[in-house]
Design a protein around this nucleic acid. Sequence first.
DNA 1: GCGAGCAGCGTACCT
DNA 2: ACAGGTACGCTGCTCGCG
Length: 788
Amino acid sequence: MVKKKGYLLAINYIVRQGRTYASLLIKGKRSVKLYYQYDPYFLVDAPSSEIGKLSKIAVEKDGRVVRPLAIEQTERTVNLEKKKFLKVLCHSPADVPVLKHAIPYPAFEFDIPFAKRFIFDFQLTPNGLMRYERQGRLITKILSCEPATPNLRALAFDIETYNPLGTPRPKKDPILMISYANSKSGVITYKKCSNKNTEIVANEKELIERFCEIVREADPDILFGYNSGNFDLPYLLERAKIIGAKLDFGKTKINLTRKGMIGGASLSDRIHVDLYPIIRLFGFIGVLKISDFTLDTVANEILGRGKVSISRENIWQSWDSGNIEDVVSYSLVDAQLTMEIGKLYLPLELELSSITKQQLFDTTLSTSGQLVENLLMFHSVARNELIPTKPVGETIDERIANPIQGAFVKLPQPGIYENIAVLDFRSLYPSIIVSFNIDPSSLVKGKRQAECHQSPTGAMFLKKPKALVPAVLEELIDFRAKLKKQLKTLDKGSGEFKILNARVQAIKILANSFYGYIAYARSRWYCRECGESVTAWGRKYIQETMEKAEKAGFTVLYGDTDSIMLVYKKKEDVLDFMEKINKELPEKMELELEGFYPRGVFVSKKSEEKGAKKKYALLGEDGKIKIRGFELVRRDWSPIAKETQYKVLEAILKKGSEQNAIAIVRDAIERLRKGNVKMEELAIVTQLNKDPRGGYEVISPELAAAKKLLARGVPLEKGSLVSYVIGKSGSSISEKAVPLEVAKDYDADYYINNQVLPAVMKILKELGYDEHQLKGFGKQKSLDSFFG
DNA sequence: GCGAGCAGCGTACCT
DNA sequence: ACAGGTACGCTGCTCGCG
């Protein structure tokens, strides 16, 4: 028996002689795979008198007989009360669903994958430092596993493939080169090439095998890729199989599996970290604002530098022509950028992983809902509370069909204003959940009012004991506050700061996802009354604060969910007001100053006199303009319209010059009329959220353009982005929509009347060119003659 | 048969 | 496949008119 320690990098399982073993990838001086015997199980709500009968259950499944390994008594807390269950221990994880169906009692905790169950039951922290006792390859005792920051080696890679049809077909199109990057980077290929850092091998088979050799030599803990779970790794696997290459990344044979909704691929003795999913998640929750998620765009946005620009479609032509120098440098830069993005995002992924108690690989493929779910499951086990079952079928449909009322948005009065203060509630929903102990288990009926918080909907939440959701959330918020304090002591720009900052960001993402998870139709902890109460309290606080601001003499311009914009005379008044409000708020809640803005503009809706919500521009004290909702922040408007709108906003907010603004519009119209606007400036980018080969009810312009691309053999599917220009030929806009790649001309009238003018008129209106005056210039048609 | 008006689809945004 | 609230363009239908 030897006492050991090492970082717990990954958990899987194997079944040997009818018993299940957790397989743990542990990094000490070197990485080892060790095993721990642990039986999978699930719970049933049956009396203990049934143990004998249930033990004898035997069901045939795929030619073998499945029996319980053993049945034990156990106890869990359900809605604050202790309840007895039977624990059905199984020979293998695969037996769990079989026995669950065979036992005629309500079953629980049968939908938790073995590796997760193992982490929960032993309260392990993935990537943490584990102390254990071992005997050969068997772990005999797990002593502890606490959060830690392992120093992990990484290697990034990227493959380029032959692609005469645009999208490569793994059955036919070979891999042409593989690039890699860590401290040292290079490209392997099998055609002559003069670039340095290029290694020439004989053929595709040697290419794959040489790459594996490089991976084994570098011996990374982590293999970084970009969309590698969906593309590079499955492609490598398939090509290796077809041409008979040995795909061997390490000590054990490669083990590629696809998992989950998000395509992924896992390795058996290294951690594959595909960076694409986290980037998409950041896009989805609005942390990253980019037009598309190609490595190019992402690198440009977050690293501030792009890569050699060649078009992917032409890789095969370069290959055929024998001039592969450009493709080789492109490929190398891809691997290097992937490495850079990996360095930037690994601390965040590691933090998400150790906080939500999911192994790193699972974390990279998790949606924010899964992160919260896993975190709650872990703490549910810690509190010995029964983990609720995932909903299915009609339960989900019913929840979706009955949405919960959301936030309050104030209708703004259109106009140009000076001296605007923006205040917002810090983490409004999380602070409400914590302040009022909002949780399915603390929701009670008929309790005495003194023991409860009563929400504006009438729902009652016990003040004590502190329930799972608020307890976990509070811990998260407090931990984040602690890290933020540490952050202030560090030098911005230092490596330490960047890592800590990423950790702070990770926790924020998590904390902000809790409300969404409670109100999520597929949530284990879904609770309609809880969700309704959170938003109702939110509406109450924002509306009351607005009323108090009005009473204090401010003009409240606008507010959305947790923010309030008001016009002030003295900054001091704003600070006094905030202080007064904060004294009245519950302890966990706080109204913060977001900033002061010298000038701002709110516009009216397109077809009504009323103000438009979620659309405004504020000029900051630093001269920066904060723009929300306008066409210019939308990717489905043409650059010419967006640029013109920006310049008009700038002219008005910064210079206060309407003459200047008019001149800008006039100039844009003139350029459009003369026909010397580049196609790129006219491109409208739209994402297809359904399959373009069916599934749509009406033929929209983007769909028409997509169909034209499909006809040319360009592969498009659900999720693809289509860039198109409105051309001259055709009657409807859809008929006129031509893919950017083939667009030759454009409809100047369309761009003037349907793009540039609508975008700028709503702003010019606020300069006194109001509806009535505009009518003096005639209808839409002659508007451009006024400008022209 | 035709244009106006409108509902519904679809997308992208805000917090 | 975390929530709901919102604006708005375009298609394709209905309806009244001639």
